[in-house]
Design a protein around this nucleic acid. Sequence first.
RNA 1: GGAGGAGUGGCCGAGUGGUUUAAGGCGGCGGUCUUGAAAACCGUUGUGGGGGCAACUUCACCGUGGGUUCAAAUCCUACCUCCUCCGCCA
Length: 425
Amino acid sequence: MLDIRFVRENLDAVQQALRNRGTSLEVLEGFLELEKDRRRLIAETDDLRNRRNVLSKEVGKLKGKGESAEALMAEVRGFGDKLKELETSLNLIEDKVRLTLLGIPNIPHPTVPVGPDETANREERKVGTPRRFDFQPLNHWDIAENLDIIDFERATKIAGARFALYKGLGARLERSLINFMLDVHTREHGYTETFPPVLVNSDSMTGTGQLPKFREDLFKVEGTDLWLIPTAEVPVTNIFRDEVLEEKDLPRYFTAYTPCFRAEAGSHGKDTRGLIRQHQFNKVELVKFTTPEKSEEELEKLTANAEEILKRLDLPYRVITLCTGDMGFSAAKTYDLEVWLPGQDKYREISSCSNFSDYQARRAAIRYRPEGRKKNEFVHTLNGSGLAVGRTLVAILENYQQADGSVIIPEPIRPYMGVDRIAKA
RNA sequence: GGAGGAGUGGCCGAGUGGUUUAAGGCGGCGGUCUUGAAAACCGUUGUGGGGGCAACUUCACCGUGGGUUCAAAUCCUACCUCCUCCGCCA
């Protein structure tokens, strides 16, 4: 959420941000008038309440002295209806203002390239060289089915399309990758491991920006106020919702492995085969809380932490900066890591690392007490995948596949797997 | 799921309808004293909104939402959370 005062005083900048994102300016229509009405109503209600308070105290004084207060009481009685009326309109208008603010995306950071879609994204660097195959490399779903480590058909019977049933060394590889990633981030990168709820309430979903605008992307548990998380970003960022942190305790780093659930509404026909786009997938997430001064630097470090996993697995990847039109709603700046998939002959997203500036912190009321200054300020929140586990497994299958159909296990995963290769039984 | 109890400031805790301020304590901050520290003493210390260049002023907030009243932390009501006991359960 943007600061209401900022929107009021910098409407041009907000409009420009919306244009750069390729979003309609419709949300802003009538905002200034609404905000003006809000302030007028506050002044009126406060004034009336003040008069009521003063007179009511007068009544108390008179009664204390044993004098009659009937006349005063009769006068103040008339305030009630008017006050209720004012309060009702004020509540209505404040709800509207809040809803408007919740519908305005974050302002892109000045270093973000301006552009309409992914064609305007900026490649920052390429790391590693795609391997040359002396045979035709297969898609991961063919590799997996040949090795009998993933059963897509039965997963469809059990749940439906876009689900997978991992089996044998496939299941073990998924688990090994989770453990490897968590071990690197907790032991070497300073993150605290958490294991949060994967069902969260509407307040949490609103805090990080999924609600109210993107409910159709989410699964909801019927008859409750609970939603399945689309990413661990939601529960972990909300750890400090409605809290005030001490500056000396910042920055705070958290990591979490969770399953993630996405309705994938609007992506019919996209990536229908294989593991790339599932309703349920595993992810190890990195989340940071920091001061505004440090957040840009922290984004670089967080991205490097995610990259480290790819480097150790020796998977070729590139880093791109998402342009204004391709960036998520709450983000001020996003780096995507894209891993090389020989089966598809292209780079595919495997991690998304974002700085949300104070946008989520304001929605979720996460503040800190700056040392030496009196006023509390909003922290900056960041997060990134470190990494998407299913897609990492895809990358391993495709990049480490051999002519005989087997798959070599990358060195750092072998201690977790107990084998150095997955071959046909 | 059933029965009972409880939610007050950073923390503990008083407060069953009013008379300038939610008492008191702890903690934090500043000061006095001291070579330094402790102790003692004095002062200070919530969040958010509105108005104002500012000093300042005003409103709201005692788990949350409604309600009663001239006036609500206090009364009514629904809900949420926690605790105790019973039942069920991985």
